[in-house]
């Protein structure tokens, strides 16, 4: 399906670890993470709170330095903030003083992109996520879901080859969340970028991904890699299939074994 050979790793995380040192002690947040992600792959990272998912994203984005190991994106070592990527946070981080389209065009302003072309693309992106007619609305005039859509458009304006998202739908209601998952998959299938998607939700991870990285509690390490072998485009109804249930079951069991999930009666 992809014209990129499968051995080419777009994102390589090599024996990466991260310690946070404070006056009193050192917290090991990530330990020996090894992960290769192909170009165009949609990878989700699931793991318990505090296992270092956000830290991993910060490392990929070049926003913090690893304590050990190295990260390569498209063959280049990440040593400073990586401005080639698109980034989406749990909070939408829209600028209150800019309208929806101005928020998206922030990228164009900073990167000094051609204004006419960028404006056209911004309009197109907003339309793609169902926000046509809201271009001139200020963030406080938009709902939580709409705001997060704007921030996704902002992350996509410069056509990044890699999109990293840290629990982008975590604060949204179930319906909005479903819709945004579908929107995201559609955009991804059109652009063929590589996506690293962090989530707490096992079903969300299974629904979206080609592959799931299951992480253990702190110090975070990779517990298991699971290929999700389900057809695309994904449909909401697939969440009711046996295959889907088997995947969520598999991940749930890993978390139970790790003691992240406990049921009554467990020893």
């Amino acid at each position: 399906m992809l014209d990129v050979p499968s051995h080419s790793h777009f994102l390589s995380i090599k024996r990466v670890s991260k310690n946070f040192t404070s006056r009193s002690d050192t917290v090991r947040a990530l330990s020996d993470i090894d992960l290769d992600i192909r170009a165009g792959e949609f990878v989700s990272i699931v793991g318990p709170s505090g296992c270092g998912k956000s830290t991993l994203m910060m490392l990929v984005a070049g926003l913090t330095k690893a304590s050990g190991g190295e990260i390569l994106v498209d063959g280049r070592r990440i040593e400073k903030p990586n401005s080639d990527i698109g980034i989406v946070f749990q909070r939408d981080v829209l600028l209150d003083w800019r309208t929806a389209i101005q928020n998206v065009l922030l990228q164009a302003e900073i990167r000094k992109l051609d204004v006419t072309a960028a404006t056209e693309r911004a309009r197109h992106l907003l339309k793609m996520v169902g926000l046509d007619g809201f271009e001139k609305s200020y963030p406080h005039e938009l709902s939580g879901g709409m705001r997060q859509r704007v921030s996704i458009c902002r992350a996509l304006l410069h056509k990044p080859p890699l999109l990293v998202m840290d629990e982008p739908f975590g604060a949204l209601d179930a319906l909005t969340r479903d819709q945004l998952q579908l929107d995201l998959l559609r955009i991804w299938s059109e652009t063929r970028m590589t996506v690293v998607f962090i989530t707490h939700s096992i079903t969300e991870a299974v629904f979206l991904s080609d592959r799931i990285v299951v992480m253990s509690p702190r110090p975070g390490r990779i517990e298991r890699l699971i290929d999700i072998d389900m057809p695309r485009p994904r449909r909401l109804a697939m969440r009711e299939t046996k295959q889907f249930a088997a995947y969520t079951q598999e991940i749930t069991e890993i978390f139970m074994k790790l003691g992240v999930l406990r049921e009554e009666g467990d020893a």
Binding site: M58, A61, G62, L63, P81, N82, S83, I85, I87, F89, R91, V93, L95, L106, Q107, I110, R111
Partner: peptide, 14 residues
């Protein structure tokens, strides 16, 4: 300015 806002800024190459 929140840390996230600055992270965003850095990732746009500002």
């Amino acid at each position: 300015a929140s840390p996230e806002m600055l992270h965003l800024a850095y990732c746009t190459g500002a």
